[in-house]
Nucleic acid binder design. Structure first.
Length: 484
RNA sequence: GGGUCCGUAGCGUAGCCAGGAUAUCGCGGUGGUCUUCGGAACCACAGAUCGAGGGAUCGAAGCCCUCCGGGCCCGCCA
């Protein structure tokens, strides 16, 4: 969506909310401090984020059942984190930063990019949460329960979602609580308290900023808030919580129309793929992933496998591509296969991930689009055409008319995709264009055409297709390749 | 139980919101195209009572109702 909005002249800022506090951080700390997990994984090929998330986190959670004293240790760590114990806090920050950097590597590999990282821990330490809590109390948006099972908690009573605890009876803020000031910040109801610093440069040469608690007042500060419209992109399992947040925004000011939840469906594992991971689902079509249970496939593994296949194919077809070019080409093919499979269907529909099906580079796939583009490029290159002034009136075949008609729908498709937030429309449009082109290529001679007028017209048509493919596949984050 | 989303060939999907004629595409299957403009391609065939039933309509996969089946949400977890 970032690419689509940006290219339709919207001023877009991409925020990434980093969940760097709470229980899961304490779990990892228990692993390092009490269970004496080494600071570096024994196998140096394992990324640090995977090490923490899939080894330490899993083991620690298993051990809680056998050794309840660990739970006490976690609680004491959590308290120290919330009180800001300097030794524990800085260790935690060291760990979460390392995890974050490794997670970003994978995101970047898939061509995601961000403008700003916001940290959950900063929502607390900047007093943003405190101010929001005070406001909500003052305006009676939340009330303190004096009886019943939620006694002592601050609760929001939603009109149609029931009541929701915002602050626990021990005074700590729940998960949803920290989303409220963040939402208020986005629409501009509260002032931005953060100071920003450059975190690093990204793959697309843009700057990634982070909020910081350090004092850097002399530096030039960028402005990130407020936004005219904010789009919160999150799993459709969070729909209920997002509705509650919207409702709370409305209690402050009627700005909730500027806050929208763009939901997407989760990636599930096909039962076939789940079986290969040792789970035996009975009569079930798909299985939810769970890091804690070890039921998952990780993105890097899939990309690495795709990369291997793409490399093999590329070497077979294009022996002259070698070295860095070969690596780059194979990587771009792998990424296009993955990205396209994630966006070609409805955003809200769950994605059934199957290890075997997803490794296919044929049919309705990202590489198919790249292939059509590469074919266009080679035709243009071989034609030695300097300009494209072929006369369309020389075109007369039905397939040529269909192509021209399809090309002309471009603006409508982009508008539709943008207004309705449906990136799949662009993917589908590009796929149909590629399909029509392949048919055209198969049925009609282009360079071989003996009539020069017709040939020129067809070359011009190919150039139009090439350009349109380039624009559209780029919009969905696929890199056009001249050779593959 | 309440809310919500979904059910289209063996599998995965488009079309549904803004109703029109023989329901899209891919994978898989079968059979073809090929002295190649690069076969990651193209063509053909087989494969679907669009979950079931009812309703309004000249007309329903689509809209309304009922039922059946399934997912997700309904934590002082995040």
């Amino acid at each position: 969506m970032y690419r689509i909005l940006k290219n339709t002249n919207h001023d877009v800022t991409v925020l990434n909310y980093v969940d760097d506090s709470g229980l899961q951080v304490a779990d990892i700390l228990v692993g390092f401090l009490y269970l004496k997990f080494p600071l570096k994984p024994a196998n140096s090929n394992i990324k640090f984020d995977i090490y923490c998330g899939n080894e330490i986190y899993v083991k620690v959670n298993e051990l809680y059942e056998k050794d309840p004293s660990l739970i006490e240790k976690r609680k004491s760590l959590l308290n120290k984190l919330e009180e800001g114990d300097s030794e524990i806090t800085s260790f935690a920050s060291e760990i979460t930063t390392k995890v974050l950097k490794d997670q970003l590597k994978t995101c970047w590999r898939m061509k995601a990019r961000y403008d700003l990282l916001n940290f959950e821990s900063h929502i607390i330490s900047s007093k943003l949460w405190e101010k929001t809590f005070e406001k909500m109390r003052n305006e009676n948006i939340i009330i303190k329960e004096t009886e019943g099972e939620n006694i002592g908690c601050w609760v929001f009573d939603s009109d149609d979602e029931g009541s929701k605890i915002i602050v626990r009876s021990d005074g700590t803020a729940t998960y949803i609580a920290k989303d409220i000031p963040y939402a208020l910040l986005k629409v501009g109801t509260i002032e931005d308290p953060f100071i920003y610093q450059v975190f690093m440069k990204q793959w697309d040469d843009t700057t990634l900023w982070i909020s910081t608690i350090d004092n850097l007042k002399d530096t030039t500060q960028p402005f990130f808030f407020p936004a005219e419209n904010s789009i919160t992109v999150i799993d459709n399992r969070q729909t209920r919580l997002q509705k509650i947040i919207k409702e709370i925004l409305n209690k402050f000011e009627s700005k909730s129309n500027r806050y929208m939840h763009l939901a997407y469906g989760p990636v599930l594992l096909s039962s076939r793929t789940a079986k290969t991971l040792g789970i035996n689902p009975e009569n079930v079509k798909s299985v939810q992933m769970s890091g804690r249970k070890g039921i998952y496939v990780d993105a890097d593994f899939v990309l690495d496998t795709l990369y291997g296949k793409a490399k093999e194919e590329t070497m077979k077809r294009n022996p002259e591509i070698t070295g860095k070019d070969l690596e780059r080409t194979s990587e771009e093919i792998a990424i296009s296969a993955m990205r396209y499979s994630l966006i070609k269907n409805d955003l809200e529909k769950e994605i059934k991930f199957d290890m075997i099906d997803s490794l296919s580079l044929d049919g309705n796939s990202g590489p198919y689009l790249q292939y059509a583009y590469a074919r266009c490029c080679r035709l243009i290159e071989k034609s030695n055409a300097k300009s494209f002034s072929g006369d369309v009136s020389h075109l007369s075949d039905r397939i040529e008319f269909r192509l021209i008609k399809h090309l002309s729908k471009y603006a409508i498709v982009i508008e539709d995709a943008t207004k309705n937030m449906e990136p799949k429309l662009i993917a589908q449009y590009a796929y149909e264009l590629a399909t029509l082109f392949n048919l055209f290529y198969e049925k009609l001679p282009i360079l071989k055409e003996s009539d020069a007028d017709i040939s020129d017209a067809r070359i011009s048509l190919v150039e139009a297709i090439r350009k349109m493919l380039e624009i559209n596949i780029s919009l969905v984050g696929i890199t056009p390749l001249e050779r593959m």
